[in-house]
Nucleic acid binder design. Sequence first.
DNA 1: TTACGCATTTTTGTCATACAATACAGGATT
DNA 2: AATCCTGTATTGTATGACAAAAATGCGTAA
Lengths: 231, 231
Amino acid sequence: MVDQERAADVIARDLERRIITGELPDNSPLPAEKDLGQEYGASRTVIREVITALTNRGMLENRPRFRPVVKKPGFDAAFNTVGSIVQHLINAQEGVETLFQSRVFLERALVREAAIRAQSSDIRELRAALQANKEAIDSSEDFYKTDIEFHRVFYAIPGNPIFTSLHEAYTQWLAAHWVKMERSPERNARNYESHKAIFEAILDRDADAAESLLERHLEQAWEQVKGTFNV
Amino acid sequence: MVDQERAADVIARDLERRIITGELPDNSPLPAEKDLGQEYGASRTVIREVITALTNRGMLENRPRFRPVVKKPGFDAAFNTVGSIVQHLINAQEGVETLFQSRVFLERALVREAAIRAQSSDIRELRAALQANKEAIDSSEDFYKTDIEFHRVFYAIPGNPIFTSLHEAYTQWLAAHWVKMERSPERNARNYESHKAIFEAILDRDADAAESLLERHLEQAWEQVKGTFNV
DNA sequence: TTACGCATTTTTGTCATACAATACAGGATT
DNA sequence: AATCCTGTATTGTATGACAAAAATGCGTAA
């Protein structure tokens, strides 16, 4: 006894196909519900269901009362759709900690990789990010940005788009907790020093040192974030 | 100029909350559309949209004509919702390769971690998995399972549920390509030997060796998978 | 020409209603 | 108790309606 499919599922599959193949171009608006209905011989009711389904899968972007916009999915879209779930999961301290620890784990590996395989262009990027970091020590908002940017470089080095998307996702998911962190020029300076130490370990091609420096750096950050829970 | 929300979005948020808090228990059926409609003062149309939305976010499981079933989301649910996107992304060879490389990267880090920090219970699990692996060399189906199981142990060692969910996700996403791989007792034996070598490096607490053995092991697997593209 | 403002037309969000097909629950039958 | 039968409840889908907002087209001003 096979579950018979809903009309909406069939149409959704076909629309997905059309989006993937580019027949419906990225960033273009979807045809009107009425037209889609005619094309597929279905009622607006069904088309509407299709649209909400694809919206939640990240293949359409749908502001109320505007035409849905086609989004050809990339790995970043994938992580975006997860967003709402993760948001719920990290409401408990345990959730944030789990997420943060996974980040620490991955980033340790990324830093190690950087120490071993970073090319001169990567080094340049790191140096630039570090410099920007230094210059922003006295500006609490800017420092946050340059801080993130410095870490982002590590996610970019392997050249795998999944990691860059993942960095986006991590920073978004953890942002809420991060911004609550106390900021001060002194703290910023200490963070900058950590970054600098990591950078130098990478220049020395000392993977073990780089990794453990990063670990310590993130653990310190975590201690601060954790403080924001028990307020 | 705030986008005014749709009724469906408001109700969806509230239902999410009720699912998270357990007011709607995990695995229980959702109330009938009509009843939800009455409770929220909305038409069936709207309730229906809410249901498709939550279904696509992985908080409901919805077989046609049956009551949707509440699924309290965990990190595994998160990866499941990503599934449909990833499926599309990996249709091109480039996509699979990207995904596979990310797996290699993560798993290298996991193996290194195992070599450094594995506890006796972890070692026992590895040994058991390896043993099962050996016994399945002559059975093409079973070997596949024990193969996966051996790798799974590494994802479990850090004790972070994100990694175990991620292992599930990887194996599901890559399964389609994996099963096409040629299987033979000889190949199985070779894979077993690779596993054994990795295990022994871990026993020796030799992280570098374990990592590079794993890398080689996975690269070999990749060569085989890659072969299935140009057929 | 370009830019802006306004009136007209579409389109979306929501509701109500309808009906066929299917699942479900309760009773009758074995 | 297990099985079948039947009536009811529920889902999937269609149609029509309407208000509110967006898109469109057009005429006028800069």
